[in-house]
Amino acid sequence: MSMFGRSPNAPTGSVNPERVEMAIQELDMVTDIFNRLVSTCHAKCISTRYAEGDLNKGESVCIDRCVAKFFEANKKVGERLQNVGANASGATGAFGL
C-alpha cells in the first residue's frame, strides 16, 4: 500500500532521514487505519454476549464483508479528499499558528 509518492532511489549507504520519516508516517497511517478497522468491525459484527470464545459463522461472514466494505468506503473518501488534499493543512492549519 503506497499512499505517497516515493522519491527516487538513493544509491548511498547512509540513512536518509526524510525517506525514513516518510516511511514511518506511512506505517503509522496504516496502523491507525487497521486499528480503527478492527474496532469498527468488532462493533458491527461481534455479539457482546460472549457465550463462547469462537467466532460463529455469522460473525465470520460479517467480518469479511465489513473489511471489504470498509476498504471500498476508505477508497471513495480518499478519492474525494484528493481534491482538497493539495491544500491539506488539516486541523492544525486552522489554529492560526
Partner: peptide, 17 residues
C-alpha cells in the same frame, strides 16, 4: 500537520463508516 491530517482522515472514515 501531516500527522494531524492523517489522523483526521482515518477518524473521518471510521466515523462515517
Amino acid at each position: 500537520q501531516m500527522q494531524d491530517f492523517m489522523r483526521m482522515y482515518s477518524s473521518l472514515v471510521e466515523r462515517c463508516f
